[in-house]
Each structure stands twice: as C-alpha cells, then as structure tokens.
Design a protein around this nucleic acid. Sequence first.
DNA 1: TGCCCAATAGAACAAAAGTTAGTTCAGCCG
DNA 2: CGGCTGAACTAACTTTTGTTCTATTGGGCA
Lengths: 209, 209
Amino acid sequence: MSISIAIVEDLDEVRNGLKSFLSLSKGFAVLATFKTAEEALVDIPVLKPDIVIMDINLPGMNGIECIRQVKTKVPATQFMMFTVYENDEKVFEALKAGASGYLLKNTGLLQLIEALKELHSGGSPMSANIARKLVTVFRENEKKAEPVEALSARENEILLLLSKGLLYKEIADQLSIATGTVRQHIHKIYEKLHVENRTEAINKAFGKN
Amino acid sequence: MSISIAIVEDLDEVRNGLKSFLSLSKGFAVLATFKTAEEALVDIPVLKPDIVIMDINLPGMNGIECIRQVKTKVPATQFMMFTVYENDEKVFEALKAGASGYLLKNTGLLQLIEALKELHSGGSPMSANIARKLVTVFRENEKKAEPVEALSARENEILLLLSKGLLYKEIADQLSIATGTVRQHIHKIYEKLHVENRTEAINKAFGKN
DNA sequence: TGCCCAATAGAACAAAAGTTAGTTCAGCCG
DNA sequence: CGGCTGAACTAACTTTTGTTCTATTGGGCA
C-alpha cells in the first residue's frame, strides 16, 4: 500500500519536479497537484490524500491559511511544509495551523522521501534549523514554572496555592496555619514582587505577558 | 577545522563503535570518551569539545543531570542526546537541561554524521518522533491565547483586562463604562466558565493547569 | 410586531482580599 | 552577650470583589 500525496506549489518547475520524482519513487502515488490554495481547498477534502506537500508563498491565499481551512475536514491527512520561509512567525503559524512536518527547500530529494515516510508513520520530520526554533520556545515556556528566587520557601509554597485560585481560608487549612498568617505572607510576597494584587503576582511569578 | 567530539556512553560496544566511526569520518575528531557522567563532569569543562554525544542511562548520575551541571561551565558546547529513551518526560527534561539535538539509537551512522554537522552549525537535529512530541506541546501552549468561545466579544475584552490584574474601577475607566457594568460582565463570565473568582477564570481561560 | 439577548447601569449586601501593626523565635555579627 | 534582621505567625481594620436585584436600550429574528 503506497502513500498517497497531493502537492500544492505554484512554481511549475518545482511542482512538476516533485511530481515526477515521487511518481518514480517506490511506495508513493501522487494523486493530484495544485497551483493555488483555492483549488486545493476544493479537491483535497474529496481526495483525502495521506500527505499534502504545501508551499507557503502562493498567489491568492497562502499555504498556511489553506491548511487551517482544510485540516478540519481531513484530520487524518498530514501536512508537510516545503518552503524557503525560515522566519519564526511563518514557522510557528504553520505548525499551529496543523502542519506536522517542516522542510526547507534546500532539503535533498532523498531526504524528502525519508521525511515523507516518517511523517506518514506519525513523526514530525523537520529541518534542523526549524527544530531549533521549537526547542528555543519550548525552553522559554518551561522556565516559567520554577520557584521565584527572591521569595522564601514558605512564600513560594503559598504563592503556588494562591495561583490555583484558592481562598485564603483554603490555603490556611491546607497548611494548618491561621488565615491571618496567610494574609501576611501574601502581603510580603506582593511587596517583594512589587505588585499589588493576586493576579499581578501570578503574572509576574509565572511569566505570562 | 574539524568538529571536536566527546562521547559519554557506558556500553563498551556502542562507545567504541562511535569512536571508531567518527575518528574515520572526515571533519570529526574524538577528543575523549567517558563511561560515566562523573568522569565527564570533570574533563569536559577542560576539553571544551564542540559537541558532546550523551547517553541517558548511565551507572550513577544520568546523562540529563550531567548536562545540567556541565552546560553552565561550557555554554558553547552543544549536546546531542543519543539514547533509546523516547518517553515524553526524558525528552523534555533533556531539552530543558540544555540538550539541543536528540537522536534515537536506531538512527543510522550516516544520519548521525549529518546531524552532528547540523548541530554544529546551530540547528537542532532530532528524530521525527521526538520532534512530534515538541510540536504537540507547542500546540498545547499556543492555543491558550485565543478568545474563549462561549463568551461575547465584550466579555472577552473584559476578561483580558481582568487577567492583567486591573481593578474593576480601572477596567471601567479604560472602557468608559460604569464599574457596576464591569461587575455585571464579570459575574456573567464566571457563570459561563463555571468558576467563582478572578484567578480561576484566568486559569480556565488562558490554560495554565 | 413582539420576544430574546447583549450591553449598560445602579444599589445594597456578604465575602474575600489587602493593609497595618505587633509578637515570637532563630540565626548572624561585632 | 546584646542588638539586629528576617521568617513565621496572629488579629483588627479598610478596600475590593462577588452576589443579587432591578431596569433601560438597541439589535436580530421568528
């Protein structure tokens, strides 16, 4: 059973080249090729290919928007970005829209073949430069769950409970201290973080915005 | 100028195999190999290799902890995980600790060579299955910045201001409406989200836990 | 046209959050 | 040792939040 492919790419040369190459490759069948997102939008939901190879820069609607709209109709189809765009915004938008693989156009055809197989078996093949961007944002997001330096252990403990939306009374019960004590701790937390209420403290400590 | 490598791997067969292969490969120089994290901890800060190939499962200290400790001393050195572990926790811990590449041990040696070159030039080569995990958590984190379906436009607007820690009065001023109206909107927001206070609403709407 | 809903407003009240003040205790420093 | 500091604790008091009601306006829809 071969992997069925659709290609969305406006440049004749690239589109035809890909089609020829994949058609000759064992295990692949090119179901259709499209010059524009609008055409793809109509046919892909009917064809339901295993994989769509998608360019970003297209006349009219771009490839990312195309994925966003088509993905809901064919959730099983995997989207492989194949583009020259390497800037953060485009990359992240594409992944958010539903692309699972992301190769730059300088990728060799043999590597493309490998990547398509990996994509089809549930992986997310991507160029190393693209993966690095993901790693970077991942580290950014993660470091926001660590205890805050300036606060004492007790204060961090209370801040954590506070961030879950517990009442002073509930925090007090959980720690077996008086609610007055909780108040005091929280007051000191606000002081140290230079904020004036619960929400600001949580934003400051756990990073959002 | 060839890429200098250190290898940390307890299995003799794998360690020696890697060393032999890389030594023969053009453009690579193996500076040292280690059987344990403890040994690596001492020598890597001195050797400052371009790349460390790191196993996770080691006797004594594991490879992730080793990276965490060494990374601060040699920030320029890149760490390539090379392991059989594929479970989310290990993968994410490793990346957080400072690994930039992550290959599974079923990766071919030629692909390893390619990956090391990519790592050295600033990329994050990783097995497709590993990259998929990253894409998945990325999507999770991203979807938390979108307006909440069930709420009206006005309610979302107010929820956003609320999440910044503004007082009712400040929200009212900013929107040029009465504070009573703000109360009313917020009350309806809580109702729709099935929560009872500001913090719970924010957590529910913007995702954290 | 009549009905429903979102947005607006106000007011009274209860509950929770935030402020201020003060105690105890443990560790540090000269 | 005595004095100082910071963490943990408590309570009285003020401000903000959240609840409950009631009411008006304008838009969309059957």
